[in-house]
Amino acid sequence: MKTIPVETTINGDSAEFLCHADESLLDVLRDRLGLTGAKEGCGTGDCGACSVMLNGRVVCSCLVLGVEAQGAEVETIEGMANGEELHPLQRIFLEEAALQCGVCTPGILVAAKALLEKNPDPTDTELRYWLAGNLCRCTGYDKIIKAVQTAAAEMRSA
């Protein structure tokens, strides 16, 4: 199968890559661009470990074709920190130990940030529904919900 050239923007920088027509954006990010923050948990849209932003909306990158990134704006977990300075969500996840193995964490951080940009003060119920597509096998979710709420409160007062 021949490869297709794609021009896109990733975390604010223009990027070019070649990919096959049936290759997912997740595979492109991980295998062609070395951005391994997004994880493959299921490959079928169920777990959210591959969450990235595409044109301002959170998507499962396993259910986007790499070729669909042509002309689009992609944001990944790699772009969340400001240089050495972690995003409040990232820092508080570490401080409050809202992760164990960490496989779900990049996806949860990307999805949670997307929610807080729309709704800076979600209820726990809203947050749990919003994150229903991000599965975590380790934490039991409570610590995740608490950490996002702590970060949300800090971001509101900033």
Binding site: R57, V58, A111, G133, N134
Partner: peptide, 9 residues
């Protein structure tokens, strides 16, 4: 239909 991620698409 689906999750927040699925809703985006």
């Amino acid at each position: 239909i689906g999750s927040s991620q699925v809703q985006s698409r």
